[in-house]
Structure formats: structure tokens, C-alpha cells
Design a protein around this nucleic acid. Structure first.
Lengths: 233, 233
DNA sequence: GTGACATAAAAGTAGTACTTTTAATTCCCG
DNA sequence: CGGGAATTAAAAGTACTACTTTTATGTCAC
């Protein structure tokens, strides 16, 4: 059971998409639609719709008289949430987590700076609440509860930035944080220093101190990068 | 001629996608597949494939007994290059340019810093060449030639960062730079200060000075933001 | 060997028939 | 009169079949 699916389309899409992003069917592989139809025991219609979607993600290319060719990784729409999810579920999850964390480290500080300028009172309040929630759940193996607050916190910052491109990264950040928690640290409580930094970011945003919000968030980012050994020691 | 298209599918997709992102069919609008088939004078098969693609971009949602509903802007996959292109071609092009420029301002400095660490000798060389090309074409209304170098320069930086998420933003940056040139400055030569900064970035990368490459690129970004009045005066 | 030509393989398109889901309406009972 | 269960019908989902179009590849003449 890789992915639940009501509807044949969803099922085939999930299976095939995952297979391709996981590296079965490596780039260059040629698939034929009626062969796929047979494999999945669905009609060609369904397969064609799936192929069209995969094509729009630039995972494959469909050419007449040739078939459906798997494209090289460089062409993939790596920002497509679906593709990200598939890759996080597959083999090169570590690599994926790394590159997404680097992206976060670039985006979130700037987003925090903008949030300090644009955040509504409501957003300021939720930010503070979430930071306090993180503090409250930061000790004693309450990792799941902590994660919820952490995700919400970062999502609010991204939304409050007022930039739609940033806002749409909320899901990505959620995936990264979830992946991190559920993967390699799972046991130990979160770093107290990081928790403090979140509280201070909330403070800075509330006080409209953009430079400080940005700098503090950059520190959080550095911490996240270190955790994944992306940084030189 | 909105978009060239060999193949009915591409044509319908381009037309409908553009229409939706442009704000005709505002969010909440319900379209029916056979109605669309009639409108475009194609078979329901073609329409369904198009709808499936639009659905994967989260522009629409298709529900039984209801029809194809246009989703609110917040759900759109704004990182999908296709969506970006449609929106840049449509009505809220200015807004789109603004948010993309903010994204650039966050990503490119970090990318430049990483490039200083990871760039191959080849990439360093091309970077220098492109910077010099910019200098050479920066005076005397050679805007098109300048643009080519400018795009290539930024693309190399993003690629050299070694991060695939950054690398994939090359097209976005290209669109933004093109839009900027072809839009509101078209007449006057590029800012000499910006040109110099590019040369210095190439230098910093070549000398493996990550901090300097990042700082300089940040200055370029500030310039781009100012140009669009994103920054407070 | 090279270029024109023929062939066939695979995707693209169309149309139709049927199934499934589900919003909305109806209708019965309290 | 009101609310909930049963019915209905509208629209998408699926399947299948027939046909068209493109084009890689192999063939043949020169």
C-alpha cells in the first residue's frame, strides 16, 4: 500500500510516479501506453491521462512512434509538491531533505524579515502562541506535539511574509520538518537553543524588527543545516 | 496567437490554462467537460486529459456530479513553470514579477555563496566571460545582447550552487529578467553599478570567497527590488 | 554510400456505451 | 410542519473500438 487511491487514475499515477522518481525506469527508459494499460489492468484512456500528468511534471515525454520516455532528473519539476512527496518517500530521501533544507535556509530568513513588516496582529499572536507551544513541548519526549507547533510556526512566518511564492513553501517545510523528526532524531528532545530562537523570532516580528527577525531565522537555518552535515564542520 | 500548439491537447491546455490564470473563470466557476468539448470543438477525451493536467497544477478540481471547479489562487502551483508563464502573460504580470523578484532576492545570494564553494573551473570561466560580456554590452542600447549575458550569468550561478532546487529556478530568473527588460526600462542602458557588481561576483566566486559572493549578490538583489519599488524608499 | 520511398509501430483523436458517485429532490412518517 | 430516508438524475469516470497522424526504420534504386 504505497498510496491510498479512490479512482483508478490516482492509483496508477501514484504507483507510476513513485516508480519513476524512485529510479526504477531510469531516465531514457521507454514505456508503451498499452503495455502500461495491461500492467495496471486499466484502459488505455486511464493510462493516457496519467501520462499527460507525468508529462506536465516533466517526468516523461511522450512521442509518437516512440513511446513514453522517462526524462533525466534535471528536467523534473522538483517544486511540484507531488514530486517532492514521491521523492521523499523514495530512495534518495536524504539528498532531497538536504536540498530542501538549503532552500529553506535561503528563503525563511527573508520571509521572516518581511513578516516583521507585514504580519497582522492575528499572525503575531499565533506566532507567539506557537513559540510558547514549542517551549512547552520541548522536554520529555513530546516530539509529535512539538512538531505540530514547529510546522505551524514556520507556516505562519511564510504566510505573513505576504509573498505568495514563500507562502506556498509551507507544505515543503512541513514535509522537511516531519521527515526530520520521524527520521533521525526521533529520540532526543529538540535543541533548547533552537527553541529559544523561535521565541525570539516571534518577539522580533511582534516588535516589527525586520533585521533581527531575519538574523535570528538565519541562525535557526544554520542549525538545521548543521544537523544534516550540510555545513563544513 | 496566444500560444503555438501542435496537437489539440496543447492548444486546449494553453488556452484554458491562460484563461483561468488570467482571471476569466474566477475561482468557484464551474465548467463542464462536454461543454468545454463543444466550445473547443474537440472530443471529451482531449478535454479530460487537459482537465487532469490542470488538476495536477491545482488550478481546478473535478468532482462527480458537480463539474470542474476553478480553485482559489492560494491552491495554485505557483512554482509550475507553465503556470508562471501563463501568469506573466496575463493581467497580474506586475504582481507576479514582484513576487518572483523577492524570491530571487532570497535565493540568489545563498546560491552565489554556494557557487563560490562548488563551482567548477569551467563554471568560473563562463561566469567571468558572461560578466565581461555584460560590461561590453552595457552601453549604447544593446539591451538584447546584454540580456543574454545577464540570463546566462545568473543561470550559471544557480547551477554552480550544486543545489537542484536552486538550479531549477534558472528559467524563472530568465523570465523575470526578460520581462523586466522588455517592459519598463527598455530604453535606458543598465545601471553601471549593477554591471560592476556582476563582475565582482564572478571574481569572488573564482577566488572561492563565499561570504563576499553572497554579500555582492545581495546588493544586486537590493537593486532589483528597488527597481520595482518593492522596497521602502 | 546516399538519398528517396515505403512500411509499420505507436501515440493521438473521436465517438459511444456504460458505471459510479453524489447533489438535489421527493416523499413518507413522526 | 419538520426531518430523515429513499429516489432520481446529472455529471464525471471508465472502457472499448475504430480511425488518423506522425515518424523511426528499413528497403531499394541509383
Amino acid at each position: 500500500m504505497t498510496t491510498a487511491a479512490q479512482g483508478l487514475h490516482s492509483h496508477v499515477l501514484a504507483t507510476l510516479g513513485l516508480a519513476i522518481t524512485a529510479g526504477e525506469h531510469p531516465p531514457g527508459t521507454v514505456l508503451r501506453t498499452d503495455e502500461l494499460a495491461q500492467t495496471f489492468d486499466v484502459s488505455r484512456t486511464v493510462v493516457r491521462e496519467v501520462v499527460r500528468v507525468l508529462e506536465s511534471m516533466h517526468l516523461v515525454e511522450s512521442r509518437r512512434r516512440v513511446g513514453v520516455t522517462v526524462l533525466p532528473t534535471e528536467s523534473w519539476n522538483v517544486y511540484d509538491p507531488q514530486v517532492i512527496r514521491w521523492r521523499l518517500a523514495g530512495a534518495d530521501r536524504p539528498r532531497q531533505l538536504r536540498s530542501l533544507t538549503v532552500l529553506r535556509s535561503a528563503v525563511e530568513p527573508v520571509a521572516a524579515g518581511l513578516a516583521a513588516v507585514h504580519a497582522t496582529p492575528d499572525q503575531c499572536r499565533e506566532l507567539t502562541e506557537r513559540a510558547l507551544g514549542m517551549v512547552a513541548t520541548s522536554r520529555g519526549r513530546q516530539l509529535e506535539a512539538y512538531l505540530v507547533h514547529d510546522i505551524a510556526f514556520h507556516r505562519v512566518v511564510l504566510n505573513a511574509s505576504g509573498n505568495e511564492m514563500f507562502a506556498r513553501l509551507g507544505d515543503v517545510v512541513a514535509e522537511v520538518l516531519t521527515g526530520r523528526t520521524h527520521h533521525h532524531v526521533m529520540f532526543e528532545d529538540p535543541d533548547p537553543a533552537a527553541v529559544t530562537l523561535h521565541v525570539q523570532v516571534a518577539e522580533a516580528v511582534r516588535e516589527r524588527d525586520a533585521a533581527r527577525a531575519e538574523a535570528l531565522t538565519r541562525e535557526i537555518a544554520v542549525g538545521a543545516l548543521k544537523e544534516l552535515d550540510v555545513l563544513a564542520p
